[in-house]
Design a protein around this nucleic acid. Structure first.
Lengths: 331, 331
DNA sequence: CTGAAAGCGCTAACAC
DNA sequence: GTGTTAGCGCTTTCAG
């Protein structure tokens, strides 16, 4: 019933068994530096057979590559770390980097004063790379030099830093088009906070879609929370009482709006349709069922983590992941 | 706008500045081994002033203490890693171990074949310790020797492994008592899966509370999912049509039950009261608002992570964290 | 293309 | 109580 911890096999063992030096074995295994095809194959075979796995700790010590991927989240307060969306990013990052012997760390980046923290991260020898979440253009532009090439962004993009995000431009267009197609003519949107650049595409997309249909643009600011949805829908109804659809930047906000509408006795979707974005679990189980669009967080986070680890260093550019409309009863 | 990565200060620098050897500096800083009070203070002052932080990588290499805390989750399939509750545990573990320069890893432990994975973990030099989630008595009893003393459990306990859990015995008692006090007389419970020992206290508590009030015990098995709540409430109504309250092992299950009851046209709480456990976000925002009891996951996970890192090695024993009743409209 | 040698930053024996 | 001496497992010059 017990499982003794047999001493692990080291590079020395592999080298000896393959009849080469440690240096040669290292080169053959890592692929860095020259090595004869025959030797390489032999060493790899021996390593495989012995079940050799390079010790990430030793490797990190000598190469300075670090032992953990930091998920750094920009926000006003450290409370941004308590977030269901972020938790999925962290979990996925853990799965991806775990496969390479690396761990994950979580760091809050103060919105108004990110530099001290960033500098500290860049100096921290344990940091293998960083996944920037909800970050700003300023942070991306002023990234410490030593973090360049091993930092990626989820959301905002820049010329230097590769970014990964849901294609919410498309997601929003499809959702708002759905509202238009189903006969809605006065569609308001509750947006995200102004400082965040990632939902910009969504807001632009809403405005464009609505305008293209000859309908009025009605936007009210929010901050991704349920409370913002509650407050937002009140403001919408105050400013434009004839609104017949509310589109929210995310499901949490949409659910807040939905709750208020029901409290006010408005029929959903009879009087007012509601749609959101993200397809969180609660969207499916809440009252009428919330119409929304999917947000492939795990795919995005996995791609981001991969990019950090295998730093292809191919500069900036956004990789977008598709979002799909999920029609439920609310719209 | 740029932040150069000044070379980090090493133990060598501190030692030199304090006029001692590296070994002495190390002893003074770590507190292991003898060191004169005066020397210790001086070294610590210098270290502080220089902003010295021991490199966890080097430390791990030589001491074999590892660089990451593994959160190991028992379950039938790897799907258990996709779970909101677990995500909170991971996030919290990341915050706690992050402060010490360590990362977090996530590992699935197959319910029916945990040993190969456990053995591998015990051999992995990067593993500083393990937080076992949803684990079984068998795993705890057969833990590889080298993992002892640096593994803790969230949930199940054993004589050897310290455990941390919510006091759900008390939480359930309070919730079920609330149902009894508000006039419910035929209270059914939808439980968790049989192999999991952690909700046992809750089930026993339900049975005891209900019996003490002279009421019948009505239990139906589930598995923590929304689907289990849907199926469970159907079975409850089939077997005991006069049931006037459903208590579920967790909020997800309670929400499933609630949805079915509403679909069937039963008034909640008029005809049937519903209560759950966990106080998930959806409990507050769902339809009538779900009565439940809090589950201080972050506190529990933080305590568990601390215990792993500072391995006091003080054997088994459970530390329980209080749960509080949250009364909403559903009961 | 390969081997020998030199460390990465730190801790742990062992002498003094 | 303190300094000296060895490494931990790996990568990486530098000669051959």
């Amino acid at each position: 019933m017990d499982h003794p911890g047999r001493p692990p096999v080291t590079l020395e063992h592999v080298a000896r068994a393959a009849g080469v030096s440690r240096a040669t074995a290292s080169r053959a295994l890592t692929g860095s530096g020259p090595s004869a095809a025959g030797t390489r194959e032999r060493v790899q075979a021996v390593a495989e057979q012995l079940g050799y796995v390079a010790d990430p700790v030793a490797r990190a010590l000598v190469s300075g590559r670090g032992t953990r991927v930091v998920v750094a989240v920009t926000g006003m307060t450290a409370d941004v770390l308590d977030d269901a969306y972020l938790a999925r990013v962290v979990t996925t990052t853990a799965r991806v980097s775990g496969a390479e012997g690396l761990g994950v760390a979580l760091q809050w980046l103060p919105l108004d004063r990110p530099w001290p923290t960033l500098e500290q991260l860049s100096r921290d020898r344990t940091v293998a790379g960083a996944v920037l979440v909800n970050t700003t253009a300023a942070v991306l532009a002023g990234l410490p030099r030593s973090l360049r090439g091993r930092a990626v962004s989820i959301g905002a993009s820049s010329p230097d830093v590769p970014a990964f995000d849901v294609d919410n431009g498309h997601g929003v267009r499809v959702a708002v088009s759905h509202l238009v197609r189903s006969g809605r003519r006065r569609i308001a949107m509750i947006t995200g906070p102004a400082w965040l650049s990632c939902p910009e595409a969504g807001e632009a997309s809403y405005a464009a879609t609505v305008r293209a249909a000859g309908l009025p643009v009605r936007m009210v600011p929010g901050d991704f929370t349920v409370a913002a949805g509650r407050a937002g829908v009140h403001e919408v109804l105050r400013r434009w009482p004839d609104t017949d659809a509310v589109y929210a930047v995310c499901d949490d906000t949409a659910l807040g709006a939905l709750a208020v509408l029901q409290e006010l006795g408005r029929q959903v979707p009879g009087d007012v349709a509601v749609a959101g974005f993200d397809d969180v679990p609660a969207a499916a189980s809440s009252g009428p069922g919330l119409t929304t669009a999917t947000h492939p967080v795990e795919q995005i986070a996995a791609a981001a983590a991969h990019a950090v680890l295998h730093r292809p260093d191919r500069g900036g550019g956004v990789t977008r992941f598709p979002s799909e409309l999920v029609v439920r009863a609310s719209a």
